[in-house]
Amino acid sequence: MRLSLPPRLIGAILVPIVRLWCMTLRLERRNLAVFKDPALRARRPVIILWHDEIFPLIPSHSDEHMACVVSQSKDGELLATVLEGFGFRTVRGSSSRGGMRALVAAKRFMEEHDLGVIFTVDGPRGPRHKVKPGAVFLANLAGSPVVPVRVVMERAKIFHKAWDKFQLPWPFSRCVIVYGDPVDLPDCTRDPEEMQRQCERIEELMNSLGAI
């Protein structure tokens, strides 16, 4: 008989393990001044990243008054617990579960708490490294810029069977976090073709940031 633990319990067990693991990493952050700019924070940015690169970002922004959009799945429940253990707020919902209601809820959360959100633009199910419209919709709804972020890991265990090929950096390895400049997107909520163009534009930006 298999014993299935609740995702919240697994997440609570993982928090101290992740904290110890992350303490060994050699983190280097590039273009951080732009990211920390108070004028940018005042605009409540939508910070975008790839799903497989999230691990080193958790300790980098611990207790910095930030929020993450996390899916409503069981995996999302686990991730939300870990993130909350590092001081992040979480907004539950994604483009695949909850749809537009989740994005409207995220916009309302940004306004009520006066903060931006972190959004994995290829999550929660992929395709890997393909920008989906959710973050673009949210940026349009909130009138926020998007800020692309990439992580390049020197040595990492890649989980090839996972849809995102999740990367877990080995202890004591170097991780370079690259912050892109903020980008203001045109309103394309009523224009599917323009929406697709903006997704492709963001994808190009993300790919260029990873070429360090």
Rank of each mutant, 00 (worst) to 15 (best):
residue 187 D to K: 09
residue 128 R to I: 03
residue 73 S to I: 01
residue 60 S to P: 08
residue 147 V to K: 04
residue 140 N to C: 14
residue 77 E to P: 05
residue 25 L to G: 11
residue 112 E to K: 14
residue 190 R to K: 14
residue 14 L to P: 03
residue 83 L to I: 04
residue 183 V to P: 01
residue 84 E to K: 15
residue 5 L to Y: 13
residue 77 E to Q: 15
residue 89 R to A: 13
residue 171 P to W: 07
residue 186 P to A: 12
residue 40 L to P: 01
residue 136 V to M: 08
residue 80 A to R: 08
residue 26 R to N: 05
residue 205 L to F: 10
residue 91 V to L: 08
residue 125 R to N: 02
residue 175 C to W: 06
residue 165 K to G: 03
residue 172 F to L: 13
residue 46 V to Q: 07
residue 136 V to E: 07
residue 67 A to Q: 03
residue 100 M to S: 11
residue 174 R to V: 14
residue 94 S to Q: 02
residue 38 P to I: 05
residue 169 P to S: 09
residue 97 R to I: 12
residue 4 S to P: 00
residue 14 L to E: 09
residue 90 T to G: 04
residue 58 I to F: 11
residue 151 V to L: 10
residue 180 G to N: 07
residue 106 A to R: 10
residue 191 D to K: 03
residue 181 D to T: 10
residue 66 M to G: 06
residue 182 P to N: 08
residue 79 L to G: 04
residue 1 M to F: 09
residue 91 V to Q: 07
residue 80 A to L: 10
residue 76 G to P: 10
residue 133 P to W: 01
residue 38 P to W: 08
residue 208 S to T: 10
residue 147 V to G: 03
residue 165 K to E: 14
residue 168 L to C: 06
residue 98 G to S: 11
residue 148 P to C: 00
residue 122 D to C: 00
residue 120 T to N: 09
residue 172 F to W: 15
residue 37 D to I: 03
residue 207 N to S: 11
residue 124 P to F: 01
residue 33 A to L: 04
residue 198 Q to N: 06
residue 96 S to Q: 02
residue 204 E to L: 12
residue 151 V to T: 15
residue 67 A to N: 04
residue 96 S to T: 14
residue 88 F to S: 05
residue 28 E to L: 03
residue 41 R to Q: 15
residue 174 R to P: 03
residue 191 D to C: 04
residue 108 R to F: 05
residue 44 R to P: 00
residue 132 K to R: 15
residue 115 L to P: 01
residue 131 V to Q: 07
residue 163 W to T: 07
residue 199 C to P: 01
residue 193 E to I: 00
residue 117 V to D: 07
residue 98 G to L: 10
residue 51 H to C: 01
residue 147 V to Y: 04
residue 17 I to K: 09
residue 62 S to G: 04
residue 125 R to Q: 03
residue 211 A to D: 14
residue 1 M to A: 13
residue 69 V to I: 15
residue 201 R to L: 13
residue 42 A to K: 10
residue 83 L to T: 03
residue 190 R to W: 06
residue 131 V to T: 11
